[in-house]
């Protein structure tokens, strides 16, 4: 990305302003569908910013996860919030009526969200807005000032990472931090993903998505794309050892492949939807924890893989994590319990 780094300050100003504008529009546009679309665009631009900052690993995660998966989740939720009443969009009068009909399911035109609480007196609201504006401005000012103070160059932990990189089992610094130096965080982070899925399933809204008959073109295209995406995922895991990439990027591509397959009408075989699926979902945390604990038996500290095996341990962990992350993301999108 050297060509990007060489560009002048103007590019950064434009990128920064675009991000702020997209975020502001996404948070204030009266139409929720438009808001979500703008938010997805925001994620894509943020991905470009990461590339600009030489954070290719983050860019590779931001675009499929931050923009892709989050966007798909938002759109899926939105499609369930507004059953067939797309025309009721942005009608202020309809929103007024809503205030009196609150609590009646199916009556609300959710697309137009009359946001500010309307039952408080106008003077009170104006005062509140003024105070809050003042506070937020003060906060922005001090945060900006603090950031300014942090401007002088600092190498952070770069030297320590480089010194210990040969012992980590991988050649790419970010992968070394994620899977070895700070592997404990990463183990727990996969647990957070699994936890979110358990939470979603416990709510049992069970609104199975994509149960409509798929478009024939989409179906054919998905069946063609999905194997390709699985290949890309495998490549991303492999490349993560010495270049940007790794389990999270690969897992999100795998999850997207699962979503596509699902949208094309493919279903898990009935026998696989029970404990075999759950096994795949839990595999990432289980394998990571098993290896991390087994090394204690060898006299190593928790999660301290011996240098000679570190490469293989990390590869096994990453493969299991990729499978689990892909399965969890696809299951989160589908929503209801299988």
């Amino acid at each position: 990305m050297a060509w990007l780094t060489g560009l002048p300050l103007a590019v950064d100003l434009v990128l920064g302003a675009t991000l702020l504008w997209l975020a502001w529009r996404a948070l204030s546009s009266p139409d929720l569908f438009q808001a979500v679309a703008l938010f997805i665009a925001f994620g894509v631009i943020l991905g470009l910013v990461w590339a600009r900052l030489d954070a290719i690993d983050i860019a590779l995660a931001e675009i499929p996860l931050g923009a892709g998966v989050t966007g798909a989740l938002l759109l899926a939720a939105l499609s369930q919030l507004q059953p067939a009443e797309v025309d009721a969009r942005a009608a202020p009068s309809a929103t007024e009526a809503n205030e009196h009909q609150a609590g009646q399911p199916g009556q609300t035109a959710e697309t137009a969200d009359a946001d500010e609480a309307q039952h408080k007196p106008a003077v009170f609201r104006a005062l509140l807005a003024a105070v809050m504006g003042l506070l937020l401005f003060a906060a922005l000012f001090s945060l900006g000032l603090v950031t300014w103070q942090l401007w002088e160059p600092s190498s952070g932990l770069t030297q320590q990472v480089n010194t210990h990189l040969p012992e980590s089992g991988v050649e790419h610094p970010v992968t070394a931090v994620l899977l070895n130096f700070r592997g404990y965080d990463t183990l727990l982070e996969i647990a957070v993903l699994l936890l979110a899925l358990i939470g979603v399933w416990s709510l049992a809204t069970a609104s199975n998505l994509g149960d409509t008959t798929p478009e024939p073109v989409l179906a054919a295209l998905s069946r063609l794309l999905a194997p390709l995406m699985i290949l890309v995922a495998a490549y991303l895991v492999w490349v993560g050892a010495h270049a940007p990439g790794g389990a999270f990027q690969a897992g999100s591509v795998l999850g997207a492949a699962g979503v596509l397959l699902r949208l094309s009408g493919w279903r898990l075989p009935a026998g696989a939807a029970g404990w075999p699926l759950r096994l795949v979902l839990a595999l990432g945390v289980a394998v990571f924890a098993f290896i991390g604990l087994a090394v204690i038996g060898l006299g190593e500290p928790l999660l301290g893989y011996p240098t000679a095996w570190a490469k293989h341990a990390i590869l096994v962990i990453e493969l299991a994590a990729t499978l689990s992350i892909g399965a969890i993301l696809a299951s989160l999108f589908i929503g209801g319990r299988p």
Binding site: L157, Q160, H164, N180, Y184, P301, L303
Partner: peptide, 13 residues
């Protein structure tokens, strides 16, 4: 005090 992974702060947890 235990260094997870054997690295020790500030590199490790």
């Amino acid at each position: 005090r235990i260094a997870v992974g054997g690295w020790g702060a500030p590199l490790g947890i």
